[in-house]
């Protein structure tokens, strides 16, 4: 590459760096602001004195949040749905993508089955019929309502099947010659080789379950079954006290003042903040793989 050290070029490099620095700061700033508020005193926060650094440092908001069984129970529901939902989705994805990755000559109905799955992306029954289906299955107020309707992530299945298809055919053939059946080939050849793709889709499933709130609001009638994000939706955003019994009302007011709101937001965001930078190597590979195919 020809290096250019002219004045214009240097001004551009400095300007570009500054611009991108500001853009990055803009993405980080809101979180820092929330963090600063959560560690500030209620009075300073209410007066709008806090910007990016805590004023009158205190952990009272966190004591308040962690001392409340409602918040901790919602946290626990979220952990349960992440664990169960991710395990289920990953298992389903692995076994569903394998037959669909076969050539139609090896698996005659493959194209038909693939369309059965893809059609669900193109068309849906809509909110109300889906809600009534879940309700008629008796899953309202159970963990299953949060896990089963989205258990088969069709987009991820497509991503994984395209990954399977790019694996060398010879590996499968040699394992078949050695006498391994489809199940063994899948488990011993395909799964170990597709770990980067599985890590990517796994991360997205975890984040998806952790962030999901609408299904909790739709399918849960009792607040004690709410996952964390749904709980926060009612407490922080809608400040909805309809479901709250009289003796809890005082607690809810406490939980919805500015510093406590900030602390709850930060605690809910924290698991994602620590996980995502470490997995970025995997998922960049995975996303690019899934969207740009040969």
């Amino acid at each position: 590459m020809i290096t250019d050290r002219s004045l214009g070029r240097r001004v551009f490099i400095a300007g570009n760096f500054t611009f991108l620095f500001l853009i990055s700061f803009l993405c980080l700033m809101p979180i820092m602001h929330i963090l600063a508020i959560s560690f500030s005193s209620g009075a300073a926060a209410a007066a709008g004195k806090v910007s990016l650094w805590p004023v009158d440092f205190t952990t009272a908001a966190y004591d308040n949040v962690f001392g409340k069984p409602e918040y901790l129970r919602a946290f626990w529901v979220s952990i349960q749905r992440v664990l169960l939902g991710t395990a289920l989705s990953m298992a389903l994805m692995i076994v569903t993508a394998y037959p669909l990755s076969k050539d139609p000559r090896q698996f005659r109905l493959r194209t038909f089955y693939a369309w059965v799955f893809v059609f669900t992306i193109l068309f849906s029954g809509g909110l109300i019929p889906t809600y009534l289906t879940v309700k008629n299955l008796g899953m309202i107020d159970t963990l299953w309502a949060l896990v089963l309707p989205t258990a088969i992530p069709v987009f991820n299945v497509i991503l994984l099947l395209n990954f399977y298809r790019n694996l060398p055919k010879e590996l499968e053939e040699s394992s078949r010659i050695d006498g391994a059946g489809h199940f063994k080939t899948l488990w011993k050849i395909y799964v170990p080789l597709s770990l980067p793709a599985l890590a990517t889709t796994g991360l997205f499933t975890v984040v998806g379950h952790w962030n999901s709130w609408f299904d909790g609001m739709l399918y849960m009638n009792h607040t004690e079954n709410y996952p964390l994000q749904t709980f926060l939706q009612t407490v922080i955003i809608k400040m909805d006290f309809r479901f709250i019994k009289a003796e809890q009302a005082e607690l809810m007011v406490k939980l919805s003042d500015r510093t406590s709101r900030a602390a709850q937001i930060f605690v809910a965001a924290f698991p994602i903040l620590i996980v995502y930078p470490f997995l970025q190597r995997f998922f960049i590979k995975g996303i690019v793989m899934g969207s740009v195919k040969e």
Binding site: T96, P99, K102, S124, P129, T130, L132, L148
Partner: peptide, 29 residues
């Protein structure tokens, strides 16, 4: 030759039928 491949699709197909195709029938509402 192909039965294991059909077999592997059973859980996925079941869930898709239940949570995507059954609601589509609910469109008559």
């Amino acid at each position: 030759r192909e039965w294991p491949l059909h077999f592997m699709l059973i859980p996925g197909l079941f869930l898709v039928l239940l949570f995507s195709y059954v609601p589509m029938a609910g469109i008559i509402m």
